[in-house]
Structure formats: C-alpha cells, structure tokens
Simulated assay, not measured.
Amino acid sequence: MGRATTRRPVVRLRGEFETSRPDTVVVEEPLEIRVDGKALAVTMRTPGNDIDLAHGFLLTEGVIAGPEDISVARYCDGVGEDGLNTYNVLDIALAPGVSPPDVGIERNFYTTSSCGVCGKASLDAVRLLTKHSPAEDTSIITSETLSSLPDTLRTHQKIFESTGGLHAAALFDTEGELLVVREDVGRHNAVDKVVGWAVQNSRIPLHGTVLMVSGRASFELAQKSVMAGIPILAAVSAPSSLALDLADESGLTIVGFLRGDGMNIYTRAERVTITHAHATADAVRT
C-alpha cells in the first residue's frame, strides 16, 4: 500500500540560523479508477482509503446508488521502478444489471488535487443525477454545536500535524458526534473518502449529518453533499456563488467562515438554532 507521507531534505532558515534536516511532506500520486476494466478517471490523491475514494467518487458522480451496485474492488498491477505494485490503479466491478457510466465529450474525468472533476460543473447535471436530495431533511443543529466542529476536526487531522499540507473532511451527526474523518491533498478527494466510507457502511442517504471541510465550500463539494443526501455543509472558509445556487435549488444548508464563535449561514438557515451564547454576542455587537 502506498504511503501518505515521505521524508525529503530541506534547508531551514529561521532568522539568522540555517539548518539542514529531513522534513515530512505529504505524498501526491495519481490514482486511476477503472470500471469493469475500462479507465474512467485519474485523480491526484494522497494514498490511503482508496476504496473509500472510489466508492464516494462513483456515488457522487451518479454511477452507483449504494454498496449493492459494486461487486468487487481490487487493485490492478501498477508496477513501479522497484518492480512492486504501486497501488495506483483500482478496478471496480459493477454488480450485474448496473449500467456502466456514460462517458462522453461532456465529461472530463481527469482531476487534479485542487479542482475536482472539471467539465461537470453544471446545475443541470446535478439535477438529473440526484437521488438523495436533502431538501426534505428536517434536521436541526445548534450554533453552539456547529462552533465546536472545526476544533474537533483539527484534533483528528493526524497527517496534517506532521506535514501541514492536507485538506480534511469530517462527517458529524447533529449532536456533534464525529462519525469519520478523512485527509487528502485534494479537498474533493477527502470528501469522496468520507462519502465512500458511508457507502460501504450502508449509510446513504446521509440524512441528519453535517459535512465539515477544512477549506472553502466550492460547487463540487456542494454537489457531492447533495448527491450523498447530506443536509448541512460547513466550511472554515467562503462558499462560491455556484455552490450557493446549487444549495438554494437543492435544499442544502451552507455555513461558511465557521471559526471560533462566528459563522455565516448562507442557505436554509432554519436548520440552525441560535443558542443563547450566540444570541447574546450578537446583541452586544449590535
């Protein structure tokens, strides 16, 4: 299995002092996802939880609806210079009767660690593929619980502690209980790994949950939330306009700039109950 981190030499400058020492950096390698032996996607990811990643990717792209749609997932030969399997090629065999993905010129499945799946950023595409819309989810979470999520996520970012170079995604219930955390050099991969965990544990749709991400709330992360039936997407940074358009249409709650006791609730604010502490703080600022 591939390693998530590696050691590289570095010259460190701190003021007038210079030292040479090895440093821990995050690994970024390509993963080719095949479906029934045919190449579907290549994504730049951090090795680890690749089976989760593939399951989450296939669900959020509308290829599968649940774990019953996959019969087997296995690594293929991907031989490196040392003659060993690189574990960078993963083949997914669909269950009998499951239609293979329709890949045409409108779908570009080469992804980088930063941009996600480009070429599918369209509201129409999500509308057609969505099977688990969060629109009817009546889940409620308190602002106090929301405020606690970033710190919980941060304490569980094990690889980030040693590298400082990873995104993270975590799934919580509305009481603030942590269900799963995944890290990756790509924010969309971290989310796919979380969703893939849920697929393999038969938890789709993810009603009554909150997806907490360490970066911004982009369209692709909103798309993945909607496809998995997640009602609340929370981010420490800003949302994009297209993410908010999708949230408005699909019934997704998006919370941005979730830091300390502050947050911006952009859509479906009725899912967030303002606690006394936040209400008092708002009154003082007013």
Rank of each mutant, 00 (worst) to 15 (best):
G262V: 07
D184T: 06
L179N: 01
H156S: 06
I70Y: 00
S113K: 14
D261R: 09
E249W: 11
G97L: 09
L178I: 02
A54L: 00
H132E: 06
T86A: 14
G164Y: 06
L94W: 04
A169P: 03
D173F: 02
R268F: 08
I92A: 06
V25K: 14
I140A: 06
E220W: 04
V181M: 01
T5C: 09
R34N: 10
I51T: 09
T130F: 06
V199P: 07
M44G: 11
V72K: 14
G165M: 15
D50H: 02
P205S: 02
A135C: 04
P150D: 11
T86V: 14
T209V: 06
V27F: 09
A169S: 15
P22K: 03
N201K: 04
D102I: 11
A235E: 06
K193V: 05
A228Y: 00
L94P: 00
A217T: 03
T112C: 08
Q157F: 04
R8W: 09
G66W: 13
L252H: 05
T174N: 07
S122P: 06
G165P: 00
G164S: 07
R203H: 12
N108E: 14
R259Y: 09
R8Y: 13
Y266C: 14
T273G: 08
E183R: 03
D173C: 07
H188S: 12
T253K: 04
L244D: 08
H55L: 12
F17Q: 12
I141C: 07
D82P: 09
I265A: 11
E18G: 06
F160W: 10
T209E: 03
L246W: 10
V10I: 13
L146A: 08
T60A: 02
V98A: 05
V126R: 03
A121K: 10
E144C: 05
V191M: 05
I33W: 01
D50N: 14
A283T: 09
A168F: 11
V181L: 00
G186E: 05
F219C: 02
